[in-house]
Design a protein around this nucleic acid. Structure first.
Lengths: 307, 307
DNA sequence: AGTATTTATTGGAAAATCAGATCAATTAGC
DNA sequence: GCTAATTGATCTGATTTTCCAATAAATACT
């Protein structure tokens, strides 16, 4: 345990800079007696006199000079660190790295980002689009602050905060025979040309499982990376795109129709993935906290159930 | 005033290094509750979490990692400084610079140096031989720790600690007519060939004053730098050397005689010269403190009168 | 399920810190 | 030369902080 305190060092530096005990006391908002005793204590523990004192003037001794240099450096280092952390805590600076499922990233995240950016202009938010397992890995290895994605398996290491429950929809051209239905079954599309995401996506995995349960192999004609591309292709009548509900723009539709896929109603719980016991940075916490507010169209957005 | 304390930082670093609050508490000789509260306080003032805690393990957050680096540097800097001052205070290290009058430097100082060196082998004592006014200047400008020399004028800026009262002696060949006397007057040597020190020495100045008071000009035949040279020349019958009492070896005399110069009895008070209000370094203080013990042959060595 | 270990919390005691009054010493102005 | 003002040192009582012991809560291991 160090035998000196920061107060002592600060006081010493203040006296050295102010050139007097009284002036230092004023500067430090301390009584002069406290300043005296702090310097005296410091001198006692160090065993050397720090100042030449006459009643009228105060000069540094050689030892004092040597200490001033070092104390100043240490003090400034600490002060810098504190203010850096303070500004990070005040969220005038900082970085957040999020791993986010593509469906969420393309739908609600942009609004969140825009809102967060205007409220905290100093924070740099970086989004990495990733699929389910990648999100898990990124969170587990602490390489992102948190993830937004499906809760796939209940893992004790994770903490899950539910945001939306996502179903699947089929997207097809308006002229497609199934376009008029209010809902369709998976079995209805077993023989249709399916437009799907790449293999490693969770959506695709789910879809393959369902096809397999029905004794079919999913053999997509096209594998596209972006949801929007799939939608455009469906719109062009190239097939039926099967997508997570959230990934499809609900606003102004083009020449395509969105029909919910039910029977079975397959859902995935999408939400925030954090490492259990991990303390988020202030910025990350703020981001996580405002997220639910942007889940407007779904009742279960307020369902903060943990995994 | 810095909002963090060294204890908090030390505790934080200890927890980070020990990898647990309990272990850190043991290492710091603190109770675990104190460790907890210190870390908590630090986190509160910084506004960020420093550790990911589960009851079973403790990991640094990103913020904690950043702080650890800085805190460690600052702490080490302070610890280094403290230990450096400590060892200086313990006088296992340090430097003393002394300006000393030649008479003193050639007589009692060597014994002091030898004794001090054996007692404090780590201290490096540097002696600069100088004449009275030079000693004063060196002390005044703080370019030496203290001086040993004559107190010439009472100067309020100086603090004087008396060591010996020095008279003048005449040194001459054993065959000189005055050699048999037990004391001689300055007037007796007005017409003798005088061997003297250079002009800037205090001895020489005193001598010139006395000659002037007697209406004579001091016109030394030889001006030598070293006392011993003057003595040898006097011994060889080249004249009468006028020297401070302390400068002449009192032990085994050669073929020369030492006769005190009285009428008037001119003395100078030799002692330690320090800048008023100047705190000596521990080593210098120790040196000053043992000095009087080496003034054995004179009663007034214990006279610690200030100027 | 039970035990042991780890962090968090609480309440009271001990210690450090602080401020105001006073003192001693010095300087500046008259 | 004298007075007034300023400065650092010291003392004392009050406040604040720090600390520890006991206890609680959570988790891992058996």
């Amino acid at each position: 345990m160090l035998p000196v305190s920061l107060k002592q060092l600060e006081t010493f530096v203040a006296v050295a800079e102010a050139g007097g005990f009284r002036r230092a006391a004023d500067r430090l908002n301390l009584s002069q007696s406290s300043v005296t005793s702090h310097v005296r204590q410091l001198e006692e523990t160090l065993g050397v006199a720090l100042f030449h004192r006459t009643t009228r003037s105060v000069r540094l001794t050689d030892a004092g000079n040597a200490l001033l240099e070092r104390a100043d450096r240490a003090l400034n280092g600490i002060a810098d660190a504190v203010s850096a952390f303070r500004s990070e805590a005040a969220m005038t600076a900082g970085r957040i790295l999020v791993a986010c499922a593509p469906s969420f990233a393309s739908s609600v995240l942009p609004n969140v980002l825009a809102a967060f950016q205007t409220r905290h202009p100093g924070i740099f938010v970086q989004v990495r689009e990733a699929y389910g397992s990648e999100i898990h890995d990124a969170v587990r290895t602490d390489s992102v602050d948190f993830g937004i994605g499906p809760m796939e398996r209940t893992d004790k290491d994770f903490e899950f905060r539910h945001l939306v429950t996502d179903g699947f929809v089929a997207v097809m051209s308006g002229s497609h025979p199934l376009a008029g239905k209010s809902s369709i079954r998976f079995q209805d599309i077993l023989d249709e040309p399916v437009l799907a995401m790449p293999r490693r996506s969770a959506t695709r995995f789910k879809l393959e499982t369902i096809f397999a349960e029905n004794g079919r192999m999913l053999a997509p004609k096209y594998e596209m990376l972006h949801h929007q591309t799939l939608i455009s292709m469906a719109e062009a009548g190239l097939g039926i795109a099967v997508l997570p509900e959230t990934a499809v723009p609900t606003g102004r539709q083009g020449a395509y129709r969105i029909v919910p896929l039910t029977h079975p109603r397959v859902t995935r719980r999408m939400g925030i993935l954090m490492l259990r016991g991990n303390n988020l940075s202030p910025a990350a916490r703020a981001f996580v906290d405002i997220l639910p507010a942007f889940i407007s169209d779904r009742r279960d957005a307020v369902d903060h159930s943990a995994a």
